[in-house]
Design a protein around this nucleic acid. Structure first.
Lengths: 189, 189
DNA sequence: TAAGAGTTCTTGAGAGTTCAACCATTCTCT
DNA sequence: AGAGAATGGTTGAACTCTCAAGAACTCTTA
């Protein structure tokens, strides 16, 4: 329905389409075939819609972004509800800078506190406050519910498991010495 | 490895953990069981890493963000390489405002042009320029390659297909009259 | 045809993110 | 010990996105 029918065209367009081949095949390894293309597009569309939905829900119900929520969750799961900034950043796939800014804003709302590390003078520990924990407890049900409505409950058990497994592999990323293929990749610095 | 062992704690923490139950079960429908939790986390981690990697690649090789790249792709696939702003926004899951800003920046670099609609005075058509098309052609191989390295080539055909199918369902989203479940969801305005 | 309501897009301000310095501390090596 | 490199974190400016308001147009209805 949102798809535009190319057949409507009065002028012929067979300029080489960089993303799709008419015969649905990938002649060399450089393009994606139809199935790969479909999967990739579905991923892009689905993940942005999902992200959108969850952010909206959290924003509306708790005045919080998904990023902030995830900070709370990680801290709540850590011993002493404490984590080094760098570990937190690594787990969340945040840049250090992003985490610094995010945590500063959360500190302003008393959700977390920062304390310099005793054993490493460079380090800073981020600690979940009681306020932060209480906020998480109030917020969690609504969030989990949204995750269910927008993903978990839409899929069968098998589908969800398959999705999880695939994404776990994607999260791992390419092995460092994987073939960098045509024209990209760092030329061994 | 990144997982923190709660057993290490010297103080007992059995405050109700908002995201995880010790027995790995979801007593009512409100929480996620272990498998669901794993899948969800894998999705979060994988999608942010993937997004990161692709953005970096495009930024480095073409000085462009993934958002901008997608604009180019959609336009290149459309008749006359033209799309109404609103259609483009809908396809990309961008807010109108976001698209306006993005397109303005791209217009500054001569990648696209804007023309007011002939048939609807409110509408604006976004048109891919020759420069934009050429840029897309130069950029596409590197990008496709990155998509392969960071996703497609990491999965078996079946895994990729399963991922695509699941994400297509997620993209559909919950059916409008789906049970809103506990305490959230719009109360029929 | 004129008022009101809805649509399409833009604008500007505010909030979040990134990038490139930067400071402080710790590690390494001689 | 001390120079240099590496690590951990912060800062501020530039950039991007969101939100609320507004401008221009079309549709409906009386």
């Amino acid at each position: 329905m949102t798809q535009v029918d190319h057949a409507d065209l009065d002028e012929t367009v067979d300029v080489p389409d960089p993303m799709q081949h008419q015969d649905g095949q990938a002649p060399d390894g450089r393009w994606l075939d139809d199935g790969q293309q479909r999967a990739w597009r579905a991923f892009l569309l689905g993940s942005s819609r999902l992200n959108d939905a969850l952010n909206r829900q959290l924003e509306a119900e708790a005045g919080m972004s998904l990023s902030e929520y995830e900070v709370l969750v990680r801290l709540s799961e850590s011993p002493q509800r404490t984590l080094r900034m760098s570990e937190l950043a690594a787990e969340l796939v945040f840049s250090r800078s992003r985490l610094t800014h995010t945590v500063r804003r959360m500190e302003d709302r008393s959700l977390v506190e920062r304390r310099t590390c005793r054993d490493d003078g460079r380090g800073v520990n981020c600690v979940l406050t009681d306020t932060g924990f209480a906020t998480l407890q109030q917020t969690a049900p609504g969030h989990v519910d949204a995750v269910r409505r927008h993903m978990v409950d839409l899929l069968t058990t098998d589908q969800l498991r398959a999705l999880g497994e695939a994404m776990a592999i994607v999260a791992q990323g390419p092995s460092p010495q994987a073939p960098a293929a045509a024209g990209s990749g760092t030329p061994t610095p």
